[in-house]
């Protein structure tokens, strides 16, 4: 019996266990991520589209997993007229809010 055999007498189960834990951690992350990102993307798109005309492919959503925290990054490219309206709308709401407070 070789030295290797003596060591491997622990059996192959621990190796199976380690491999499984790795595969499953990866797969859970993949599935969890893709599902959540798809849902978030659709819902965020719907909210924005109610107010501004945007092109769906100009919206990027990224989830990045770090050590302690994960971040959700949102990158939306607005068409020029919409961008202008967006700033206009903001001043208008601000004005309305002021009026409401005054009343």
């Amino acid at each position: 019996m070789s030295l290797l055999n003596i060591f491997s007498r622990r059996g192959s189960a621990p190796v199976a266990r380690e491999r499984l834990q790795l595969i499953i951690a990866h797969e859970r992350a993949d599935h969890g991520r893709s599902d959540l990102v798809v849902i978030l993307r659709e819902e965020i798109l719907a909210v924005i589209a109610k107010h501004v005309a945007i092109e769906p492919d100009k919206v990027q959503i990224k989830v990045e997993r770090g050590e302690g925290v994960s971040t959700l990054g949102l990158d939306i490219e607005l068409p020029l007229p919409a961008a202008a309206r967006l700033t206009a709308a903001r001043t208008e709401t601000a004005a309305k809010a002021k009026q409401a407070v005054a009343a």
């Binding site: 007498r9 622990r10 059996g11 192959s12 189960a13 621990p14 266990r17 499984l20």
Partner: peptide, 11 residues
């Protein structure tokens, strides 16, 4: 299982 060649129930 005794020989260590099968995943343990706990695993």
């Amino acid at each position: 299982a005794d020989r260590g060649d099968m995943l343990k129930v706990e695993d």
